[in-house]
Design a protein around this nucleic acid. Structure first.
Lengths: 347, 347
DNA sequence: CTGTTAGCGCTTTCAC
DNA sequence: GTGAAAGCGCTAACAG
């Protein structure tokens, strides 16, 4: 019982204790425990035994004080309250947590001031690297760091091309959705898209258009209908499309929400999904797609994978091997009932 | 330019530099900067000026090395990929972030081993306190800490009554939902509930039952229908209820999802919502309630508030004023179209 | 191979 | 009021 302040009796045993118990100097004990060279095997074993016996845990701060590596990374989110960042965090936490890296979380609330403040705090804690998780896939301006700390941008790429960024390939997503519909016999395809201010919406539309063009097709309404991300927009547009283009045999929703709205309207109008009209969405958000009636096909953005590769890239960058540039990560189809080929089309 | 390892030129200026620039000793500089007593005002000012001029940031680790307070708290989640933890985190991050507290995030993936591992890491980083965020509102066994660090449980309370826990008041939630329906003239009320293994489901059912009893009413089906949390379950049950109890004038969904399914079935069966049957859910999950057709009334669990008060309690506990026991935090109604009193009931 | 000697940057007695 | 000295727990030279 020393005279330390109350509550400080955490991990009492110090390196000196271990050294003494093992009958060596602190320096030797340190080398032994850190797998440094020039330590006799027998000594190393003795030290390790002593450490184990004393339940020794090295003092994190003392270590950090003279090693310039803290095994801590900062995760800066623009908006925690966003269903897209979660899987990314999860994948990242996964990649980090398996090792001995800890994650310092900071939520900037999509506010530049807060972001700068949090960056300063993170830097003062000497994080080894920074993972910047965006709110959308719209490119964002790079964070301004006064010092040289590796940064990886995920979801929202940095506008600076020499930075390292990972973002889902929304053009491919659009292509996959369109290709699937064409391959299952659909020809009169419409796209009800989300907000035009979102790169995700524009990229998906582009992918759809390009893919259709490859098949000598084009969107039913001539162009993609940009609007909002919600069900209501999906309902409204589906109703209009069903009237103005009764021949429609497939509708792509810019998001799962929109697609749900589309299904809702079509069903109420007496159009059968998928027999009369196939419907597909984007994001493959579990709660929306699996319990839909019928279950909704969707394009999965592989967000957890995205987080994982970004985290790995950050670890590599910390290790000195930066993987710079913009990386568009692949996405994949998640097929369900809503795009089952209609029987008549099968022949 | 010292001979430090590359990338270590972070916050170059040290206390010694400041002291020298101010023409005082390091000891005095330290006292001045930390608002300790026994420092002449003029000296203090001079030191502060020097610090500002040199853009001095105290070395976090050196400080931590002899202060036993790290201004870091650990946030241990059972399952990051859970829509209920987000708002809680947000509220907590809010309460912490406004000060100078940093948050070390660890996701246990609902795995005891991982949890223990993460706790050890967090403790080795000497967090001042621990916020344990549960996956459900089911009580959980307390975390085993070898040392005396304040812990606050949120969402899932600890089974140990002397611990500090914050959880939403689901009994009240059930009461509020039922009371609202009764007050708007509904009398033949059914409850389609979630999984019986969830305390949330059982508590909500209890609240509904108690409230109805206070009005000399009881559930239409005699008892609550426990099942699953999804839309499908809501659809199936609503269909059954509409057939077996055609007189039903209100259905409470155990979650917004269930309620959405209920609305879906009722609509398809030609029952009008809310004119024929009122529908209300729980959780007030934005994407589900506001874009529903009609928009869905719900009970908001105040999760962000929950996170905030838990975080505040943790800060207080760190400060030495623990607020022990189980705290059931209040919830509130979020009324929308789906429970509008039907015109005939208004008289 | 091992121990001795110096610090890392800061706080804290305790004299002056 | 202020400063000299000691030390938090560890790692990194340099000798031996």
């Amino acid at each position: 019982m020393t005279s330390l302040p109350p509550g400080a009796d955490v991990s009492k045993a110090t390196l000196a204790d271990v050294a003494q118990a093992a009958g060596v100097s602190r320096a030797t004990a340190s080398k032994a425990l850190n797998n440094r060279v020039h330590v006799k095997l027998e000594t190393r074993l003795r030290v390790e035994a002593a450490a184990a016996a004393l339940d020794f845990t090295p003092n994190f701060f003392a270590k950090a004080l003279n090693s310039s590596r803290t095994n801590t990374i900062g995760m800066l989110t623009s908006d925690l309250d966003n269903r897209f960042v979660l899987p990314v965090l999860l994948g990242a936490e996964d990649a980090f947590g398996s090792g001995s890296l800890s994650v310092l979380l900071a939520d900037a609330r999509d506010d530049v001031m807060r972001e700068q403040l949090h960056i300063e705090t993170l830097l003062s804690r000497k994080v080894d690297g920074l993972l910047v998780v965006g709110r959308t896939t719209n490119p964002r301006s790079p964070v301004g760091l006064p010092v040289d700390v590796p940064v990886v941008y995920v979801y929202a790429p940095s506008t600076r091309e020499t930075d390292t960024s990972f973002t889902p390939d929304n053009v491919l997503a659009g292509r996959l959705a369109a290709r699937h519909l064409v391959e299952t016999g659909r020809r009169r395809i419409a796209l009800v898209n989300g907000e035009p201010s979102y790169a995700a919406a524009r990229d998906r539309a582009l992918g759809v258009t390009l893919e259709l063009r490859d098949h000598d097709l084009e969107l039913l309404s001539g162009d993609s209908l940009f609007g909002q991300w919600g069900e209501r927009w999906g309902r409204d547009c589906a109703r209009l499309i069903a009237q103005s283009h009764p021949e429609v045999d497939a509708i792509i929703g810019g998001s799962d929400h929109i697609a749900r709205g589309v299904i809702d309207s079509l069903t109420r109008l007496g159009r059968r999904v998928p027999d009369d009209v196939a419907v597909i969405g984007f994001d493959n958000w579990d709660v929306l797609v699996s319990e839909s009636e019928p279950p909704l096909s969707s394009v999965d953005m592989n967000l957890e994978h995205l987080g994982r590769v970004a985290a790995q890239a950050l670890v590599e960058a910390i290790g000195g091997a930066p993987r710079t540039g913009l990386h568009s990560e692949t996405v994949h189809l998640a097929l369900r009932e809503s795009t089952r080929p209609s029987v008549t089309d099968d022949h």
